[in-house]
Amino acid sequence: MTISAEREVIVEVRNLKKHFEMSNGFLKKTKTTVRAVDGLNFKVYEGETLGIVGESGCGKSTTGQLLLGLMEATEGEIYFRSTDLASMNKEALRKARKDLQVIFQDPYSSLNPRMTVGELIGEPLVVHGIMRGKALRERVIELMQLVGLREHQYDRFPHEFSGGQRQRIGIARALALNPKVIVCDEAVSALDVSIQAQILNLLNRLQKELDLTYVFIAHGLPAVRHISDRIGVMYLGKMVELAGRDELFNNPLHPYSHALLDAVPIPDPKFRKEHELIEGEIPSPSNPPSGCRFHPRCPYATAKCREEEPEYREVLPDHFIACHHPLLDEDTSIVPATH
């Protein structure tokens, strides 16, 4: 899918923040604030897959939970089809939640081990009072077939399934209410390569058949590149860059995105190379660096980066970045030219 201005925005996030208060130290008297998500702005278009990548502590999972309404934002708004989720009354929110579903990383810990596959997949329909009895069973079997499970597995329990099969159960459950948007939180990260390919293909097929919009949160860049139309890169609670998939990989403008993409090992010994290592570790989100949060690790950092926080802006069409010194005039491609 190409990026176009005419496409309809289905979810929009404005200045979204989530801060956690923590008590540490002697008698828990030291209070610190963890700025897990600290001012996000982005749009998700109908029918697209927006990938969100980043390393531990960047706030990508918190962002997913906020989108789903699983936690309350400290500041900022989330619009679903131009209505602010926070302004909705209970009934409206209940309806909106039907349209916003989630697939988790580890389907084993998210599936009740005492429920059968049929009960698990049908539960959302029962909870929302949509179906009962024979109709329910038929719908569940239809969902099972949709994700590649067989009817005779209806009365089995989750522990009887392999990781990939369990992820299929999780997907069927997420699809039960005919959602519009599915947040995939590390949905394929725990799976073996051969199973990961099956699930990625399934997600792609379902998106086409059911007109779904995905927010695909993951740390594994190859999978994100495979499935996403646009990709956002997060670092310490901030979106540092957001662009079309190929644009981001061919022309990363933020030094962090560049380093992150460069660090991914390419599965081909012909392309063995020295990595441009970025130094140091990711700072704690409870005490983020001043100015640009990446400046202590950035090879291009100047005094300005230490003092002034860079504005998140559109530097090229559909290419957003928060950096004082974007890599605009250099050849930044991390992708080998010939293959």
Binding site: S194, A197, N201, P222, R225, R245, D246, V264, I266, P267
Partner: peptide, 11 residues
């Protein structure tokens, strides 16, 4: 079956 970072395929 590995998604390739430098060679994107549809399926």
């Amino acid at each position: 079956s590995m998604p390739k970072i430098h060679d994107v395929v549809n399926e």
